[in-house]
Computed example of a mutant assay.
Amino acid sequence: MGSAPVTGIEDRVAYRLVKRAFDIVFSAAVLVVFCWLFAIIAVLIKVDDPKGPVFFSQERVGKDGRTFRMLKFRSMCVDAEEKLAELRELNEKTGPVFKIAEDPRITRVGKWLRKLSLDELPQFVNVLRSDMSIVGPRPALPAEVATYDDYQRQRLLVKPGLTCYWQTRRNRDSITFDEWVDLDLLYIKKCSAWSDLKLIVQTVGVVLTAQGN
């Protein structure tokens, strides 16, 4: 990508209007068509861990640094946030991102929700609210964004998304944080209706082959 700043996205008015219209129609259709699946997942989560809520809400950073509450189906134990500190030294990712392959906080149902990427489904509500888009850089935590340099902060030039280049890579677990940022900025620089459509199709393939984690 080089060090040159990414520019021009705000001038692409037609693309941004088409993208928003697609986000509304697509996310509304998913929420209606798969409402039965939402109900089944909710029941499974409550049966597996009756004391915890069905949904997990967490503050994330969106376009231009605006924060919002991102929704997910809960895939971890209720006190997962409190247990994070004692697991920090096991982090397998570079940069500010935390991830370990065998996270002990993940519930039995949560393991399969993540494998099938079903824990992300409630984020279609965030898309309808205009917090997110279908395609865009994955939304980061405020603590992560606080460590960004000027180059990395360019991830915030567009709305965060449900899927992105990193999300569709088979080797995504081995991608460093800097490479992840490069992929996000490449998307912002090259984004188009056609590239968004290709990423959505690739994401469907990832879900159907259970490549989530």
Rank of each mutant, 00 (worst) to 15 (best):
G8I: 02
D11T: 10
R12N: 07
V13G: 00
L17Y: 12
K19A: 01
K19C: 06
K19I: 01
V25H: 03
A28K: 10
A29G: 14
V30P: 03
L31T: 02
L31A: 10
V32R: 08
V32I: 15
F34H: 00
I41H: 01
I45L: 12
K51N: 15
V54I: 15
Q58G: 07
E59Q: 10
R60G: 08
V61A: 06
G65K: 15
T67V: 08
L71W: 11
L71K: 04
M76E: 04
C77H: 08
E82K: 14
E82C: 00
L84V: 09
E86Q: 15
L87A: 04
L87R: 05
R88D: 09
E89N: 13
E89L: 09
L90K: 15
N91L: 13
T94N: 05
G95T: 06
G95C: 08
P96A: 14
K99E: 01
A101E: 07
D103Q: 14
P104N: 02
P104W: 13
P104C: 14
T107E: 06
R108Q: 13
V109D: 11
K115I: 10
S117R: 06
E120N: 11
E120L: 09
V127K: 04
D131W: 02
I134W: 00
P137Y: 08
R138V: 12
A140T: 05
A146N: 01
A146F: 00
R155P: 01
L156W: 09
L157D: 09
K159L: 15
L162Y: 11
T163C: 14
Q167S: 11
T168Y: 03
R169A: 03
I175V: 15
T176F: 00
E179R: 05
W180Y: 05
V181P: 03
D184V: 04
L185M: 02
Y187S: 00
I188F: 09
K189V: 02
K190C: 11
S192C: 14
W194G: 06
S195W: 09
K198N: 02
V207M: 05
V207A: 07
V207N: 04
V207K: 06
